Simulated assay, not measured.
Amino acid sequence: MPVEAKLTEQQIYERIWKSIAERRLPPGTRLKEERLCEIFGASRPRIRRALDQLAHDGLVCHIPNRGAFVSTPSVDEARDVFFTRRVVERGVIEALKENVDSKTLAALNTHIEQERQALRDGDTSQTIRLSGAFHMLLAELAASPLLADILRDLVSKSTLVTAVFQPKCDTQCGPDEHASIVAALSRGDFDAAKSAMNTHLLEAERTLHLETSGDGQPFQTDVLGAALTEET
């Protein structure tokens, strides 16, 4: 049975993204168009547009004559993602120099409180989303569309990397670390903010089990159906 009738490609994208982020669609899973059409009650063109968007974000790869699969980053790719994030996000802090004011700080602190609430609620999906969204919010507040576009791609890839290399019990980013970055910004100490960001991303990378290739969970017979038809 389809999850819901007349979903847009953006809604389909979000459902698949969420299942990847929550480790319910393991890397290497084949995303069969026919099965996705059944699950979502959507046409092939709509499914393909959603898959193309996921491929653009690096979460899905298209293999000629085989179809679409959830991407599986290598150890080198995982390290490269976090190295690049450290470079880019220091640039985001630099770009924020002209844009930090009471409204900016209020928006960041409100977001951090939402992160804390998601942790208290034990809402894994919301915690993952808000963790990445904090970094995107910094880029948006820096008023640099190019940096925001670059970071969006990197945050998406980080989500996939953690799905492969991070134990389910670990948290990729913590609100306390985000709060230390905002505290430095509130003091106007941008060097300290850059240092806090660098330390934060190094710690996130440190929690990855880069000597492994995943958590070893067995594939289910119908992993798409099991992952995408769960209540959200």
Rank of each mutant, 00 (worst) to 15 (best):
L130R: 03
V182I: 03
T159V: 09
F40R: 13
E4C: 14
S180E: 15
L51I: 13
A142I: 03
Q172V: 11
K103C: 03
F83N: 13
Q11M: 01
T110L: 10
D176Q: 14
M136G: 07
L105T: 02
V161Q: 07
K168G: 12
M197P: 04
A226K: 13
Q126M: 13
P167I: 07
R116T: 02
A192R: 13
V81Q: 05
E113V: 08
V75Q: 11
E230Y: 08
A148Y: 04
M136L: 14
L160E: 01
G132A: 00
I181G: 02
T110S: 14
R120Y: 06
V164H: 04
V88Q: 06
R30C: 11
R44Y: 01
P145L: 00
A107T: 07
A118Q: 11
D121P: 01
L51R: 11
L147H: 12
E205G: 04
P26T: 14
L160T: 02
P145G: 09
Y13I: 05
L210Y: 06
G225K: 11
A148P: 03
N99A: 11
Q217Y: 05
A78T: 05
S131F: 02
E77R: 15
R85N: 12
R206H: 12
F165Y: 03
G132H: 02
I128T: 02
G122L: 09
E115S: 11
T72C: 12
P73F: 10
L96G: 06
A204W: 06
I12A: 00
L201F: 06
C37N: 13
T207I: 00
A163Y: 04
N65Q: 15
V92S: 02
K6F: 05
C173N: 14
E33A: 15
V155H: 09
A183M: 08
S144M: 03
Q10T: 13
E22H: 10
N109E: 07
S74R: 09
R79A: 01
L105Y: 03
M1G: 15
H56E: 11
E34V: 14
L160R: 08
L7P: 01
G28Q: 10
H209C: 06
L59W: 02
C61W: 10
A42Y: 06
T199V: 12
Q126I: 11
G58N: 10
R24Q: 10
V75R: 15
A204K: 15
L201G: 00
R206E: 07
V88T: 14
V155S: 10
G188R: 11
E77M: 10
R116C: 05
N65S: 15
S125V: 04
N109C: 02
T171I: 11
P175H: 11
G216L: 00
F69P: 08
A183D: 09
L146W: 07
G214T: 06
E9M: 02
Q11Y: 01
D189T: 09
V81R: 07
A143K: 15
P45K: 08
R24M: 05
V164G: 03
S71N: 14
V223Q: 15
I20R: 00
I12M: 03
A95P: 03
T171C: 04
S195P: 08
G132S: 00
R206D: 10
A196Q: 13
A139E: 03
G188T: 04
